[in-house]
């Protein structure tokens, strides 16, 4: 469903992504990990065109992301994205956040959008909190609203950019639980995260990146039991110690 082939990207003279290639099949959950600055977030933002790239191709459902004639807005409407800092719109209630894209992009009626929003708020365990503004919610609640907001667009795939990195420890699990439930339901997911427990439980494949390169791209079991590269082994030994 998502095909990434030979992506190269530079920020000025800094080579952030070097010849990255991978693919994600329908229903697959792929976790991307690696040290900070390794290009994980940049790679995932290339998938829906939030970051432009100079070389290579990315296709989502056979539509080229970097293509000249591609209507990026139309493509993005079908790819959900969840950000590290939640990025809920502060002047809108949780309900309005979830309804915005539905009414303005998909053209749903307000009642239809609200019904869908209510169902999704139930699903992420926030059924009663739709009237709250983001600043009145905890970090974990905000991130769950953000997930509901992305799901409201009926996406064909979901991108998660370090969804738990900005959360207090006691709130991480409530978000991971929602993501796990989502994965079980068959959603296609690309997840940038340091949560190796989540990767073990949920991922089909793990991609390890370092210095802009995809160093390891393996099934979950292979990755955790017999990583081929030294760098991945070193990384795992560092973060799995505790």
């Amino acid at each position: 469903m998502i095909e990434i082939s030979n992506i190269n990207k530079w920020f000025g003279s800094f080579h952030v992504l070097k010849n990255c290639s991978t693919q994600v099949a329908k229903g697959e959950v792929v976790v991307i990990c690696g040290p900070s600055g390794s290009g994980k977030s940049t790679l995932i933002k290339c998938v829906n065109g939030l970051e432009p790239f100079q070389e290579g191709t990315i296709t989502v459902n056979d539509i080229s992301v970097g293509g000249k004639g591609t209507d990026l807005s139309k493509l993005r409407a079908h790819i959900g994205m969840v950000f590290q800092n939640f990025e809920l719109f502060p002047h809108m209630t949780a309900m309005q956040n979830i309804c915005l894209g539905q009414t303005k992009v998909l053209g749903r009626s307000t009642t239809e959008a609200q019904d869908r929003a209510n169902a999704l708020l139930q699903r992420v365990g926030l059924g009663e909190l739709g009237y709250k503004y983001p600043a009145e919610l905890s970090g974990g609640q905000q991130q769950r609203v953000a997930i509901a907001r992305a799901l409201a667009m009926d996406p064909i795939a979901m991108l998660f950019d370090e969804p738990t990195s900005a959360l207090d420890p006691e709130m991480i699990n409530e978000v991971l639980d929602v993501m796990q439930e989502l994965a079980r339901s068959g959603m296609t997911m690309m997840v940038v995260t340091h949560e190796m427990g989540f990767a073990r439980r949920v991922a089909d494949r793990v991609i390890f990146m370092d210095q802009g390169e995809i160093v390891e791209d393996a099934t979950k079991d292979d990755f955790f039991t017999r990583s081929r590269s030294e760098r991945a082994q070193l990384f795992l030994s560092k973060i799995l110690q505790h």
């Binding site: 939030l50 993005r76 790819i79 994205m81 990025e87 894209g101 907001r149 667009m153």
Partner: peptide, 18 residues
């Protein structure tokens, strides 16, 4: 306004004017 807000809007399919 943090850059992520613009990104979040674009990511859900809003056009720049929206």
């Amino acid at each position: 306004i943090p850059r992520g807000q613009r990104m979040a809007g674009l990511a859900m399919g809003l056009r720049t004017w929206q």
